[in-house]
Nucleic acid binder design. Structure first.
Length: 353
DNA sequence: AATCCGGGGTG
DNA sequence: CACCCAGGATT
């Protein structure tokens, strides 16, 4: 049996019911594809529902404030996706009359839309015969054909892209593409794939040669740096201070308490004597208490963060900040987009005490 | 070509 | 703990 026939038959019996499968509206498909980049469906699904409810059309998204978009994106990670999403929504609404490009080549010009996403939208919305190559596709093809080229090498990317395009069932790219990804996600899983019930068993090189567990091949892992964050949680009656993260680096355009980063974990005496702290609050160390004696560990893809939250009670807020600062009632913090690390602190910390 | 960018699930 | 997820942008 042909590969595509077996695949599409499997898909017919095993596909999940998902909201973006009920439509061919490029706005919905685009939104879902951006959200699902490096993100599991279970994690992205509630965000998709939330965005569609708040922004039914690309015009609604274009007219929103970036702050609102980031707030709704909060917790999903890779926040450049949200910023690019908003940028592209404005572009499509204002420059393209709200009409998305209808082909792979032009879709790829949109900010935040790369090879994968352009192929997904083009095939799903417009039946263009372009193969998607995501993590699932790499895995299924590497195993089925026994390809040992590292999937994240330049050579591997080229090879798998060509292979995927060659295998593509051009008469129905929309369902073939989704079927291949769905098969990788549900059946040909990274760990414990369901080989015993696999319809490709007979022709799968990895299964025949017992290589399933070692495919696909991937080059090294990224090295993780460690950082130490000290958050200054000012407390003036029911108000506190927030700053917006700008420039490069993590959490761009999200909010946080004023931050003092140190090269090592810092204890109370060193903290109160730190020049930056003295500059802000003087030597009034009696008003400073440490919320968590043990640093809170927060892991990102390239960084391991250790955070201490210092509660600083004041009668007047300092004015010596270098970056713009916002005074807000603690109960109003929830309107700001903050990293999950801070969201957890805010939830646990009872500001009135 | 390498590195950066989140957060959560899985084994 | 290591690995992965419906990747893309930047350097």
């Amino acid at each position: 049996m042909d590969f595509h026939k077996t695949l599409l038959n499997w898909y017919l019996l095993n596909s999940r019911s998902l909201p973006w499968r009920e439509t061919s509206n490029p706005y919905n498909i685009w939104l879902s594809e951006i959200m699902l980049q490096q993100t599991r469906i279970a994690q992205g699904l509630p965000y998709y529902e939330k965005f569609i409810a708040h922004f039914p059309t690309v015009f609604d998204l274009a007219n929103a404030k970036e702050e609102h978009v980031l707030k709704l994106w909060q917790g999903l990670g890779y926040y450049s996706r949200a910023r690019n999403l908003h940028f592209t929504a404005k572009y499509v609404a204002e420059e393209l009359n709200g009409i998305f490009p209808d082909n792979y080549k032009d879709l790829k010009k949109l900010k935040g839309v790369g090879d994968y996403t352009a192929a997904a939208i083009a095939s799903i919305c417009y039946d263009e015969p372009v193969a998607v190559v995501d993590g699932n596709v790499y895995r299924v093809l590497a195993r089925y054909f026994g390809v040992e080229t590292p999937i994240n090498s330049t050579e591997g990317v080229k090879q798998f892209k060509a292979l995927a395009q060659e295998m593509l069932y051009k008469k129905d790219p929309k369902h073939y593409n989704q079927a291949l990804m769905e098969f990788g996600a549900l059946h040909c899983k990274p760990k414990n794939p369901l080989c015993e019930s696999c319809p490709f068993q007979k022709n799968c090189v990895a299964f025949q040669q017992g290589k399933t567990a070692s495919l696909p091949v991937k080059l090294k892992k990224t090295k993780v740096t460690t950082r130490h964050f000290n958050y200054l949680v000012f407390k003036k009656n029911d108000e506190t201070l927030l700053q917006k993260r700008t420039g490069k680096g993590i959490w761009k355009n999200l909010y946080e308490f004023p931050l003092l980063e140190t090269s090592e974990e810092i204890q109370k005496e060193a903290f109160t004597n730190h020049p930056e702290v003295e500059k802000l609050v003087g030597k009034n160390f009696k008003n400073i208490r440490l919320y968590n004696n043990k640093p809170i560990k927060h892991v990102l893809s390239h960084q391991k963060l250790f955070a201490k939250f210092w509660i600083i009670s004041v009668e007047d807020f300092p004015v010596a900040f270098e970056k713009p600062i916002i005074a807000t009632q603690f109960s109003t913090i929830e309107t700001f987009a903050v990293p999950v690390l801070l969201e957890k602190f805010i939830e646990a910390f009872h500001f009135s005490k």
